[in-house]
Amino acid sequence: MISYIARRLAFAVILVFTVSSASLVLARLAPGDYVTTSLGIDARRETVERARARYRLDRSIGEQYRDWIVGAARLDFGRSLVYDRPVTDLIPERAANTAVLALTALAAATLIGLPLGIITGSRRGGVAAWAIRAASLVLLSMPPLLTSLFLVFAAARTGWLPVGGMSAAGAASEGATFDLLRHLVVPAAALALPLAAMFERLQAQAMSEVVGQPFVLATLARGVPRARVVWRDALKAALRPVAAVYGLVVGTLLSGSFAVEVITAWPGLGRLMLDALRARDVYLVAGCAAAGSMFLAAGTLMSDAALALVDPRTSE
């Protein structure tokens, strides 16, 4: 077991390393660099050259990569070109905001999606089951951009909730928690709704399979009440699919969503990454990619562990 975890950790390190290296190299290969995007087309050549020299973008890819690796070995991932701050300062600050959003959305999606999936999966037909399933498919086929936009639109037009951002300007500190919760509703819903739909579909399908299995029928035949069978015996067997993906979902949620964070003006990691991509902020891109791969590695590890708990066959 310990050697298994050690191996997984080693792979996680390799993943983070290769992903951030590849991002750095690709960022250099993409046409244009930070200086062209920040100075525009009308800057004088000397100004551009000076700026390149200042940001040390005049080095070859190989040289730049080597310097970066040497720094990364000492956990110095370079300074963001755009914000002129160490990448290791910028990322945790935004990752914390994304984490608040991601965990809220995950909790909401689990609390909504799983029970609905159990209900729709354990009974055949019925208007409620159909309605839930249709709603899930609508949410799964809506582009995330539109879902977010629609929620922001609804929030603005009803006036019930803030249009975006993470806090109201000058909110008093005693009301800060409540203020944060109010601001969380729209972005969390934008993330949670499609996720809940996914959980619902997965759980429903697994449930309907399990409910038809001999052991469930046998339990029912022994006279155990149906509700108890569904919620106790069948549920445990049908949790496998959701358990299998849960960690992966955590991993991707923690990396932040471009669409949701941009539309709802949530100051998270996804938005930071998007800005960095657009500005060709090579080190910040590499840093964001590294953070993303870290979350993913942790997520898949979690996922495998959860799967082993539900279904001992898949463990080592």
Binding site: V152, V163, G164, G165, A169, V262, I263, T264, A265
Partner: peptide
């Protein structure tokens, strides 16, 4: 306020 999206 920093609002990245024009619609918002």
């Amino acid at each position: 306020d920093i609002i990245p999206d024009e619609s918002a």
